[in-house]
Simulated assay, not measured.
Amino acid sequence: MRLEKKATVVSSSVAALLVLIKMSVGIFSGSIAVLASAIDSLLDLTVSLFNYFALNTAEKESDDKFHFGRDKMEPLAAVIEGIIISFSALFIFYEAVAKIVNYKPMEYMEISIAVMIASFVITAFLVAFLNHVAKKTNNMVIKADALHYKTDLYSNGTILFALVLISYTGEHLIDPILGMGIAIYMIYSAIPIIKEGLLMLLDAALPAEDVEKIEAVLKAQNNINGYHDLKTRESGSRIFISVHIVFNVSISLYDAHLISDKLEAKLQELFDSKHVDTLIHMDPYDDSEINAIEDGY
């Protein structure tokens, strides 16, 4: 099993445990903040299970129906995760406002505090593990999952602080006000997840620094006359590069092919944590201006 899939199994198991604990305490205590955290953990469980399905689907080999594989399941999963986070935040915000209107004091403060301490510690270990996997694999789904649980870590810490504050001051309005703050923060954290996933689904080019690395490799080749029409995109754990390489008109097809193979290997080395698909069009002369005219530029 791939490390990424193992990470989703771990996150799903942790989320299931937290849902069971938080939901029980949230219902009995009447705390909007704890209940909001429980709902968030329930959505974490749903998202982690979907992420496992997405990764499992994305790693399938290409076939007659999907010639380029199913890698875009990964950014699709990230977009769905961001949308789910946003909707859950809106629900939490609504519940917080409802509690302010229909005021009711909290109960079982000691149990609520104990649960949030346990939740904070468990989530902290999970975030550390997911960050480790994200750095090692550079997988978009795991990065989104790590960011999601990182927001949970912050919210759990804030809720814990608020519960302690309520137990000392007796001011129960702190709970719904805090719930509103958590909801706003959740929406804020979901925006970059949705944005990155949409850009990948729309085949946006690689970041400028990655394109510069590719161009540096191409410019370092002494046995080519130049290059043009460099295009890049990313799809899940795969990177696609397309480029026209200009060779000397007298070079043999065999030698041009050998040079192209070496270029492909060097480009793969730039992104060792991902699979790089490089398509090299071998030109006997620079036809970039002709292509530009034909394309209407």
Rank of each mutant, 00 (worst) to 15 (best):
M1D: 04
V9T: 06
V10L: 03
S11V: 04
S12P: 00
S13P: 01
V14A: 05
V19Y: 01
L20C: 07
K22E: 09
K22D: 02
G26T: 05
I27R: 06
F28T: 12
I32H: 09
S37Y: 05
S41P: 07
S48W: 00
Y52L: 11
F53W: 13
A54M: 08
T57K: 14
T57M: 14
G69I: 06
G69T: 00
D71I: 02
I80S: 08
Y94S: 08
E95K: 11
A96P: 04
E107S: 15
I111G: 04
S112V: 01
A114D: 04
V115F: 13
S119Y: 03
V121P: 01
A124D: 08
A124Y: 12
F125N: 12
V127G: 02
F129M: 07
N131T: 05
N131Y: 14
T137S: 07
K143E: 15
A144H: 10
G157L: 13
I166R: 07
S167A: 12
Y168I: 15
T169L: 10
H172V: 02
D175Y: 04
I177W: 15
M180F: 15
Y185F: 12
I187N: 11
Y188I: 10
S189C: 08
E196S: 11
L198F: 14
M200C: 03
D203L: 05
P207N: 10
D210E: 14
K213L: 08
L218R: 04
A220T: 05
R238Y: 10
I239M: 12
H244C: 12
F247C: 08
S250R: 09
S260M: 03
L263K: 02
E264R: 09
F271Q: 13
D272C: 09
T278Q: 12
I280C: 13
D283P: 06
S288C: 04
S288N: 07
A292M: 04
Y297G: 02
